[in-house]
Amino acid sequence: MRIDVYIPLVLSLLLTTVAPQVGLRVAPALATRVLTVAAVLTATATTWALILLAATLINEAPPVAAEAREAGRRLPEPVPEIIALAAVLALGLIAHRIYRALRAEHATRRTLHRLCEGHPEDTELIVAASPVPQAFAIPATSSAPGRILVTAAMLGALQPAERRVLLAHERAHLTHRHALYAYAVALASAANPLLNPLRSTVTYLVERWADEQAAEAVGDRSITALALAKAALVAQRPRPACALSFSDRAVTRRIAALQNTPPPYLWSIAAPVLALGVLPALGAVDATRDLLDLLEHVLV
Rank of each mutant, 00 (worst) to 15 (best):
T111R: 13
T111C: 04
L112T: 11
L112E: 15
R114N: 14
R114D: 15
L115S: 12
L115D: 12
L115C: 07
L115G: 15
L115E: 15
L115K: 08
C116G: 12
C116L: 13
G118V: 09
H119M: 09
H119I: 11
H119L: 11
H119V: 15
P120K: 10
E121T: 03
D122H: 10
D122Y: 02
T123V: 14
T123N: 07
T123P: 11
L125K: 04
L125V: 14
I126V: 14
I126L: 14
V127M: 03
A128C: 05
A128G: 05
A129Y: 13
S130Q: 13
P131R: 12
V132G: 04
V132F: 04
P133F: 10
Q134P: 01
F136W: 09
A137T: 11
I138L: 11
P139V: 08
P139L: 03
A140I: 04
T141K: 02
S142F: 06
S142A: 15
A144K: 11
P145S: 06
G146L: 07
G146E: 09
R147T: 10
R147S: 09
R147W: 07
L149R: 05
L149N: 13
V150W: 06
T151G: 00
A153D: 01
A153E: 02
M154R: 00
L155F: 09
L155S: 07
G156L: 03
G156P: 06
L158Y: 01
P160E: 08
P160A: 04
A161M: 05
A161H: 02
A161T: 01
A161L: 00
E162S: 07
R163A: 01
R164L: 07
V165D: 00
L166H: 02
L167R: 15
L167T: 10
L167V: 12
A168L: 07
R171P: 00
R171S: 09
A172Q: 07
H173K: 04
H173F: 06
L174T: 13
T175L: 13
H176M: 04
H176V: 05
H176F: 12
H176E: 13
R177Y: 09
H178C: 04
A179D: 12
A179K: 00
L180R: 13
L180M: 08
Y183H: 14
A184H: 10
V185R: 09
